[in-house]
Every structure is written in C-alpha cells, then in structure tokens.
Design a protein around this nucleic acid. Structure first.
Lengths: 285, 285
DNA sequence: CTCGATCCGGAACATGATTTCCAGCGTACA
DNA sequence: TGTACGCTGGAAATCATGTTCCGGATCGAG
C-alpha cells in the first residue's frame, strides 16, 4: 500500500541517475529497510560499504531533507506493516476493487493447496520427476497452459527428457508413441476439463505410464485415471479460476526435484548460465 | 516468540510495583510498541501524558540501563516481526522437503506482492487494460514466459486486441510496428533481465506507448523505462525465483479489468463458451 | 496543622548522531 | 600528458536526543 511519499518509488524514480556508491546504498535500503528504520547513518554506511557522506547524499538525491527524513519515511512504512491485519485492510479506500479480499483469497488458495498435498505423495512424485531414466511429459488444459508451461520450463532447466504434449492431434500422438512405457505424465487441468486432455491422460495411463494429476477435486475425471492426484484450491473473485495455488504446488515440486537432482541440476544450470553469458543476452546487473 | 529479554515479561514482573504515572507509560508501551521503537522519549512521554523523567524511571525500574536500552529491546522485538519469511525460515533447521516452509514463503510472496501494489496504479492500469481502443501487447523474459502466457490468455478471453510480443527479432519488430502509438505494453521480467526484453520495452516507451512493468525491484532496468511499475516479491527455497506473487498480481489485474469490461467481456466469454459447447471439446461435468 | 516521604515534571547538561565541508582520487576529454 | 570534473570517504561542526538533577506537589501520619 504505497504512500504518496513512498521511499521505494523515489528510489525507482531516481533510478539510473544514482552513482555506483549511492546505488549500493539504495540496494541495501530496499533489501533490508529495517537497517534504515532502526539503525544509524554510520551503520547503514558500513553495511553498504560506503562512507557516511554517500548515505546522506543519497537521501538528498531522493528529495529528502537529509537522512533523518528518509529514515522517517522508512519508519512510517515499517510501522504500517506492523499494524494488525484488520487495521491494514481498513486503511485502503472503501474497497473499490477489493484488493484486500483478493489477498485473503489468494493466500487461502496457496495455503489450502499446499496443505492438502500429501507429503508422501509429494515425495513419491518428486522422486519420479528426478528419475533421469524416465522421461517426463507435461500436458495441460487450455486454461492451464501458462502454469503448465512454467512448470515445463523449470523442469527442462533441471533435467533432460522433458517434453510438452501439445499442438495438433498428430503431434500429440507422435509424442506419446515415441516415449517409453515407463514415462511420467504430469497433467494439469481444472474444472471445465478439456476432453482431449482427459482422453490423452487416460490413454497414457492405459499404456502403463505413471500419471500425476493436478486438478481441482477428487471428482475430476482426471482423478479417475491418475495414480497420484493433487487437489488444488482455485477460488477467485474474477471470472476465471485462480491458478496461484497450482503454481505454488508446481514450485514446490520443482524445488523438491531440484534438491534430489542436486549435482546434475547444478551442472545443467551452469551450462545454461554459460550460454547466457556467452550470448550477452542478459543485461549486466 | 519470547526472548530471554522480553520487555513485556519485565513489565509483567514489575507489575504492581509501578507508580501510577509509570503504569500509564507501561500501558502505552504495551498498547503500541511502535511508539517506543520508532519514537523519542519526549514523544512517548507526551503520548502517555507524563514527563520525560517518568519514562526514564520506568526503563530503570524494568532493569534497563535507560530508555535507550528499553528501546533497543522493543526494536529487537519489532524487527523480528518484520523479518521476511526467507529469513525466518533460514534460521530454523534447513528442513529439506518442509512443506510448511514453502507455505510460509509463498504466502509471504503473495502478501508482499499484492500489498506493495499501489491501489491508484492498479486502478490506472486496469483502466488501460479495459480500454478497448488501445491494443495491449504482452512481453516477458524467458523465466516469466509461463505466467505471461497465462495473463495473455486471460486478457484475450476478456477483450480483443491482445497480442504476444515474442518469436524472433523480425516478428517482434513487426508486432511493434503494426500497433498504434497509444498501445499498452505489459512487460514481465525478473532479476536476470533478458537484454532484448529491456531493449524492446525501452523502444516501446520511446514510441510513446504506455509501458507497465512487473519486475522485482525499483532498480530493475525495466523500472527505468516503464511509466507504471509493480514490484513483486519472489523469494524461493528452490533454485528459481517464485512467480507465485507475480501470478497473483496478474490475476488481480485481470479481475479488475473484467469488472470494468463487465458487459462486453461477459458477451465475449459467452461466445467462447458457445464454441466450446458446439465442439463438445469439454467433458460434461 | 506540620512534617516527611514519595512521586512527578521539566530545565540544564552530556552524549551521540547527523550534517556540512573539504581533500584525495579516478576518469574522461582535450 | 595535463586538466577539469565528479565521485567518494572521512573529519569537524552542528544539531537532536537521552540523562541527570532539582524544585514543587501530593498524600498520609503524627
């Protein structure tokens, strides 16, 4: 909840105009506002590895009268965060677009989705995703394309043998045909289940694949065909289901998989990194 | 949560021994510790309606060396409450598959991201996304492809004139060239900013487009070129940044846009629905 | 009613922090 | 290569804040 006088905005606005040393201070401030709210100029300067003068100059540059005023701004912000939730929610305007409700809802989606995940099942699935002998295929309904893609990208970064199942009917058939019968199929689809997704999943299950479903209820048709089922909570105030919980679950699976792949994944990530550096495709930061 | 040196406990222990005026101060301290953590002796004394001497005497009576030490104790306590989830988790045991830690972290990501979003900016951006006169282009870095895709899909379902900016350099150039100069560009990219994404965004801004950035810090190069910047919190225990907060923010924007488009979007959604029914591409549920 | 003890508020003082200012250093440009 | 400019760190000056201390007020006991 930004204030008319949000120090973060000021840092953003000052943006590129900052000198290297000032930027180090700014980064430190953004990184840990507590260091500013509670500490002294000398402490902050020390932490950022600069002289006290630089700290004061940064405050000036941001339009504050001096460090003291910057500190006041940061403290106001911290104090707001400390306020009990009820109070915080109230201080928005009389709920025009109900941001507070969205927050509550999304928090609930994440919490409910992750809490509902059985630890044993999580471990089993992560084991399978980390099993380099078995290829992994990712399949999703139309509404889940984005999150499935995200999951796919991350798994691909971690290990070889990850493929997307999509495109036209011919492509899907070919993908399925090519993979060995001990492959793992990760299928994501909510509510208005796409027929072809369910059919494809059933097909894969019949071929003997391990099918892992991420869907929105035990009664989902996907639950019937999958060996492991994660149930996500997708409540939303908008017209579409929320996939925030789904993504949180995906992240968890990815993290668990990464841990299992420790060495080989690090190596793989390094290789990607080297390519990036080589091509200069990332900005220097 | 209790520290060996919890000021609350000390006040409780001193309990009855306090004089009336001291008690007023103690009550004020318990009531709103922020007044102590952030304020000065004079302020606290004023707020409690006592003299500065009394405040100092209370600190003495509680066994602190003076007000300064009491303030330190209170600040330590406040600082703990303010700690981001990553930090809170880190100082516990490094639990490997700890689902609870992930929950904690992702909740924090969602909360921090949505709370940091300025209501005014949200409204402004939603207005623009709902402006059917202006086309919307969506651009994203490699790591954000999935969430950007999700956002794109949902916006497309709500309104016409939404395009993805991706593919090869030629395709990007064409996309940019074709769109009118009052278009809106929604760009999503975190940390290791892809150079071409930043360049493209800058280009769009120079053409006069409204650039809305979703990125991970005020000092992100995207923040420098965008008119509106949303800062997401992306802490993660895995090897990749978490995009859960990003997605939650996207959902919020989509919901706000949908509300503004009320009638026309409903019509559009109905049209999609009719097509689905017609093709029997959804399972009956 | 008077005395004494305790409590309290505020002024003077001391401490510690911030600000101001300057000199050194690196760098870009001629 | 020389020069000018901007950046930086730190020392001295200035300011704010905590602490100490004292005079006055209140209350109860004798």
């Amino acid at each position: 909840m930004a204030t008319p006088d949000d120090y973060r905005a000021r840092i953003g606005a000052a943006g590129e105009r900052l000198t290297p040393a000032e930027r180090r201070v700014a980064t430190t401030v953004l990184d840990d506002p507590r260091a500013v709210g509670f500490g002294t100029v000398a402490e902050l300067a020390d932490r950022a590895g600069v002289g006290v003068g630089t700290v004061v100059r940064l405050a000036d540059r941001l339009g504050y009268r001096g460090f003291t005023e910057l500190q006041r701004a940061v403290r106001r912000d911290l104090a707001r965060q400390l306020r009990p939730a009820v109070e915080r929610i109230r201080d928005g305007r009389p709920d025009p677009d109900a941001v507070a409700d969205h927050i509550e809802l999304q928090l609930d989606n994440v919490r409910a989705t992750l809490e509902a995940a059985d630890p044993g099942m999580l471990a089993r699935v992560a084991d399978r995703l980390a099993d380099l002998e078995r290829p992994v295929a990712v399949l999703s309904g139309d509404a889940s394309t984005g999150v499935a893609r995200h999951l796919l990208d991350q798994l691909t970064a971690l290990r070889p043998g990850v493929v997307a199942v999509d495109g036209n009917a011919v492509a899907v058939a070919r993908t399925l045909a090519v993979l060995p019968p001990d492959a793992t199929l990760l299928v994501v689809d909510l509510r208005r289940y796409d027929r072809w997704v369910v059919d494809t999943a059933r097909d894969a299950a019949e071929r003997g694949w391990s099918v892992v479903a991420v869907t929105d209820g035990e009664l989902s048709p996907l639950a019937a065909v999958a060996a492991d089922v994660f149930v996500v909570t997708a409540a939303s105030l908008g017209p579409f289901d929320s996939h925030v919980g789904t993504l949180a679950l995906g992240d968890l699976l990815v993290a668990m998989t990464a841990r299992r792949l420790a060495a080989s994944a690090a190596e793989r990530l390094d290789a990607v990194e080297r390519q990036w550096q080589l091509r200069r495709s990332l900005t220097l930061d």
